[in-house]
Every structure is written in C-alpha cells, then in structure tokens.
Nucleic acid binder design. Sequence first.
DNA 1: CTGTTAGCGCGTTCAT
DNA 2: ATGAACGCGCTAACAG
Lengths: 337, 337
Amino acid sequence: MGVTIKDIAKLANVSHTTVSRALNNSPLIKENTKRKIIEIANQLNYSPDVHARSLVLQKSYTIGLFLTRLSNGTSSSFLAETIKGVNSVIDENYNLYVRGIQDFQDFSAITRKRFDGIILMSQSDIDNAFIYHVLEKEIPLVVLNRQVEERSIVNVLSNDQEGVYEAINLFIENGHRNIALIEGTSHFRSSQERKEGYIKALIDFKLPILQEYMVKGNYDMESGYKAMKKLLALENPPTAVFCSNDDMAIGAMKAVNDAGLFVGADFSIIGFDDIGFSEYTSPALTTVKRPIEKISMVGAQKLLQLMDDVIEENEPIYLTTNLVKRQSVVDLNKKNS
Amino acid sequence: MGVTIKDIAKLANVSHTTVSRALNNSPLIKENTKRKIIEIANQLNYSPDVHARSLVLQKSYTIGLFLTRLSNGTSSSFLAETIKGVNSVIDENYNLYVRGIQDFQDFSAITRKRFDGIILMSQSDIDNAFIYHVLEKEIPLVVLNRQVEERSIVNVLSNDQEGVYEAINLFIENGHRNIALIEGTSHFRSSQERKEGYIKALIDFKLPILQEYMVKGNYDMESGYKAMKKLLALENPPTAVFCSNDDMAIGAMKAVNDAGLFVGADFSIIGFDDIGFSEYTSPALTTVKRPIEKISMVGAQKLLQLMDDVIEENEPIYLTTNLVKRQSVVDLNKKNS
DNA sequence: CTGTTAGCGCGTTCAT
DNA sequence: ATGAACGCGCTAACAG
C-alpha cells in the first residue's frame, strides 16, 4: 500500500540511504542520481511516513493551539480569527492541534514528544496550571492575549487598558458624565484589564466611580442584554455604556431598542474587539479594535523562532488597539446647544 | 528526557515486552506484575511515544478536518461551530488537523498513513478533486454539508431546499408577492440549493420568476448590503427578501435602515443559518436554522464508525432545518386590513 | 559520492 | 506467564 524508500532504492539500484539523502537534498549525492531518484519517487507517488520520520527526528510536526475553552465565553469570531491567524503562518506540513484546556482531565498527554510547540490563547488565570505543565516539560510556549508573570514565556497581547481608556475618553469628549461599564466573564483576565482601564479613566477625569454603574456580564450577547436592562432600570441611568466586548454591546443595543430608545440618538454605546458584525449593526457600533488575528500571527511566528533558535528577548509584545469611530456615540455637546 | 518502556522494564526486572503488554492491559500478564508495572509507570510519569506507536500500529491518531476555505466565504460562526462539533465527539487522544483545501498546492501530503480519517466540510464543487484523492488513497471519508454523487461516501447534510421553501412559504402566508433572493457565493453548492428552493416555491405558488429579483452575493455582510441596495433601487422593489445566509441578511438589514425604512415594519427579511447574532439584531431576524454543529457531530460519529467497522449503509443523512420565526417579517394581511 | 549498520520506541510472533 | 528477536520507515554514524 505505502511506497517506502526501500522500494525506490530497488528500482534505482542504490541503497535506501542514498534515497533518503537524495530526497532530503543532501549535497553528498551526485546530481545525476539525485535526479533519477526524485524522478522515480514522483512516479511512484512517494510520500514519506511522517511517523517514522518523527520517531527518528524526535520532532512531531505538530503545534498545539490551546484555548481556555472552546465554548462558553469564547465567541465564534474569536476562535475563528485565532485559527486563521495561526494557520496562515505555519506551513501545511505542520499539524495544528486545536483544543480547549477544559477538555483535559490531566495533562499527561501533553508531552514534548507530541508537540513541537504550543500556542496558548489564554483567557483566564485558570490555565496557569497548564502553563506550568508545559513549562516543566520544556515545550516551547507562546502565550497570547493575557499577561503572564513568568519572564521566560513569550507573551503577545494587546493593550486593553489603553484601548478602554480611549473609549471612555471619547465618551467624555462627547459630553458624557454618566458612563457605565458592562464587565466580561469574572475570572477572565481581560475583564479585569478592561475594568481597570475604565476606572483609571474615570479617576483621571475626576468622575465618581459608582458600583451601580458596573454590571457583570460574561461576554455573551444575552448577558449584555440583561446587564443593559439593569442599567436602564436605574433611578439615574447612564447616558453611555462601555461594553467589554462587542457581543455584549450587541445584546445591549437590543435592550436599548426594546426600551424604545435609539442608540446613537438617545443612548451611547462603545464595544470592544471590532468583530465583523459591529460595522453592520444599526447604528454601526463604535468599538475598540483588538487585533486578534494579528496577535495569533505574531504569536505563531514567535513560536517558530522559539522552536529554532531559542530567542532570548522575552519582553511582552504589545499590539495596539485602536478606536474605530462609527455611529453609536451621541455628541451631547451638539445635542444640548 | 523521555521515559520509555525499557526504563520501566529495568526497574521492574522484566522485559520491555512484558511492560508493553501490561500497559496495554493484556490478559497474558499476571495481575500482580501488571499492577507493579503500572505503579512504576505512573511514578515515572510515563506516557507512550505516539510516533513509535503510530509507526508500528499503522495508525496516526489524527483526523483531518478540511474546509473548502478558511476565509473568504466561510463565516466565523460556521468555522467555529464545525470545530466545536467535531471536537466534542472525538476524544483527546486524537489530533484534529484543521485546514482549508485551498491552502494546498497538491495533495501528496494527504496520505492514509497520516490521517486515520477525514471529515470534509464541503462548500463547493471545487473540492471534488480533493474527494477523489482521498477516495483513491482509501482514507475513510465523511463529507458534510454538500451532496456528493459517489454512493460510497458517507454524507451528512441539511435539507436546505426544504428550509428555503418554508421561508418563502412564510412570506406568502404573510401576504407577500414580490419576493426577492440574495444569492450566496456563485459556485458554492449551497447557493444553488437555496436558489432552487426559492424558485421551486415561487413556481408552486404560481408567482413569476424575475431575473431582477435574484441578486448575487458571496455570503459576506458587505455583499448583502450591496445586493439590497440594488433591490431597493429597482423600479418595482420587492417587499420581502430571502437572504441565503444570515451574514448577508444582516448586511441587507443595514441597507434597509440606511434607506430610512424599518425592517419588520416596512420591509421583510428572512435569513439562513441562525447564527448567534440573528437573535440580537433589531428587529430579531427570522431565519432558517441550519444545524451545523449537529451535522459536524453526526459526521464525526460516522467517521469513527467508519474507521472501525466499515459501515455499509451509505444513504445520505439529512438533518432537518427549521424555521425560527422572529420579528423581521411584516404581515401584510394585517397591515392592509 | 555511496553503502553498511545501527537505532529511534513500540508491538508482536515464536519460543520457552 | 514471560522473554528474545524482529520489524515498522526513516535518518545518521561510520566506513569505504
């Protein structure tokens, strides 16, 4: 069934070693025989047995892409962009093994033999245990999206705090003073980062920090909807709400609409991520663009380097967010004048 | 670095053969020694070398999940649901290799050795070449989402035509007569299926089929937006539009809004897929739910069976779509009365 | 430049 | 019930 180098060797009247070398383009082989061997290989439609090669080379040609979870709190676009980003960088000879960490009972199957390298799209502190395991096994590791204490780890992420700060700043420029926050999943690091950006901005602009203006969500649309309902029911409701991701912003917009108000006219919302849909909501959603696909690409590139040379500079790499202004923020200055 | 069965053998004062058998729970080994060996293995944190095992067992523990493309025409939710569905069925010992077919120059790397089985989420006829290759290599194959001629292939899909028919039916029940269609990517089979459902319904209800009411799109939001603009600019614009997927429906809704009209009041839209967002558009989008995650799960299960027993019944498996009625369809009967 | 030999880690006859 | 020897397909020393 499978053609092996031995088969080729027979036909070419050489040893299987010569075939191996020829196919690997070794300079030790005469151009002539090399050509002959390659010819035969093509004719026989030969393709090497990856497992035999892996076994002797101690290399698996497999990269593990792990997310904290695959469902519940991981939006589709987040997952898709991550995979696309990584896939666009690593070549087809590599297997890309995609899993959620939560799927694992124990990590005994995560070995150096099995993975040449691991990319962790980390959303929460709860995968620290995973990180330690990988570190202990000395598998090259890149952690994306969440700052990690260990200096030895390559870390690629976006500066969420700054992004949120800009968003709040935009609200303030537009005359808003009652600015609320819908938070992400509580133990996700990103939720905390964004909350801190919110609080920092309020402090800098000397605005009061109100408990009732900080409502918990869990990054899905429904939670955004519910959170907004709560805010709207307040005695002194906000005029503007920052949502910790776009999914929740879309839920929130729905709640505003259901209350008979119009986003962009009566009420202001800013989201986070800039998923594809945010351009097509009505009105189009102003949001903080987070470069997930870019982060994944850079992360994958870093991992490839790490697998080769062992790079030293382990400074976290920050990719900047940027504020995409669309139509979901009301300018109170104009409105009142 | 890596613990092997030989290491365990030494410590247990047995041969590596015995260790192998013990770890594979062979009945040939005394319970006593078996326990001892397992004990040592745990202590040493042993985990088998997958490549060595693959080499000797001729089994790769890898399942290939291929999509026609990963970007351009493949929506995020589609990709994400597919992966989630497959992942939920296959256990963690399996690698899941995810790729777009378009990434491949040639298929020589797609071998029986490398993949125990392949799931193809097929979106277009253009991957027929891929299918033939896989078939020729005798790799167990399940094709999802698109009907395939070969009887020998396990085929899991949804009955799109019927789903669309139901949607058009709903329009008609609500008094609509000028019903347009926004089509999906032109060479995708799903686009044709849905178009056929549309035409079939029009014929059955004795409505005229107008060229100008069938506008091409490519499954992304922007194309839906543009297509709707065209329809709105018609001399005799439709009152209702079926969009071949939800992404385009969302684009179309945006176009309606931009024209100063209100979906659900002045204009009717139905989408296809029921992606997460469609519940949160304003108004909530009526749509034909297609069970992508379910299809993927069933497909994965079938593949596992196929890899074991070689199942015979190769009838295509149809999973039913169902119409999710929300608020994007106007009832003309009520309105006019 | 090419061939001989060995070995990667594992499972599997064939002995005993 | 256990072990010795072999082979999966490949690469890498070591000769020549």
